[in-house]
Amino acid sequence: MSSSISFQLNGSMVRVDEAGDEPLLFVLRNRLDLKAAHFGCGLEQCGACVVSIDGQARYSCTLPVSALAGADVTTPEGLGGDPVGMALLEAFEAEQAGQCGYCISGILMRVHALLKAQCRPSREAVVAALDKHLCRCGAHGSILRAVERAAARLGGGA
């Protein structure tokens, strides 16, 4: 049985034909051509698929699109639309925070939600927020420096 779901996506209203419990990630990548959120494990264990839903970092690999009626969804492609997102993008570039880039989109979304909720997170809070993100490149130090740089630019201090 198929029905239509409407939600905000990166500042614009979208309507998608929803089919059962199809995960949001598959709708984003396969139907809406937004490729920044990645499929990693499909089990909410790596963080590559994290997006923002109503201001909260959520795994899109298991979240059925049917649960999103009226929600406000931001993907990594939408980060340039607000000051926190811009500060993060600039800081990650300045610190060269990431090597292969596979995990970075989910990490950006997680720290975006953190900085939106808490302008002055401690380093421990940032580390705790990123605890479930799997990054194998060894970019952890530069990622933490980038979050601290973005928070400082925004008037906080991670």
Rank of each mutant, 00 (worst) to 15 (best):
M1W: 10
S2G: 13
S4C: 02
V14M: 09
D17P: 07
E18Q: 13
G20N: 01
D21A: 07
P23W: 06
V27Q: 04
R29C: 06
N30D: 15
R31N: 12
L32Y: 04
L34E: 08
L34C: 13
K35Q: 12
K35M: 10
F39A: 07
G40L: 07
C41T: 06
L43Q: 12
E44M: 11
Q45N: 10
G47K: 02
A48T: 13
S52M: 03
I53T: 03
Q56S: 11
A57S: 11
R58W: 01
S60H: 04
T62Q: 09
L63A: 05
L63E: 01
L63I: 06
V65R: 00
S66K: 12
S66T: 08
L68Y: 03
T75E: 04
E77A: 13
G78W: 01
G81K: 11
P83L: 06
P83D: 05
G85T: 00
M86F: 03
L89T: 01
A91H: 13
C100P: 12
Y102I: 11
I104E: 05
G106M: 05
I107R: 07
M109E: 00
V111D: 00
V111M: 10
L114H: 10
L115Q: 03
A117G: 03
Q118G: 00
C119E: 10
R120I: 00
S122A: 10
S122K: 06
S122H: 06
R123L: 10
A125E: 14
A125S: 08
V127G: 00
V127C: 03
D131A: 14
L134M: 10
A139G: 12
A139D: 09
H140C: 08
S142Y: 11
S142G: 06
R145S: 12
A146W: 08
V147I: 13
E148L: 11
E148T: 14
A151N: 11
A151L: 11
R153S: 12
L154D: 10
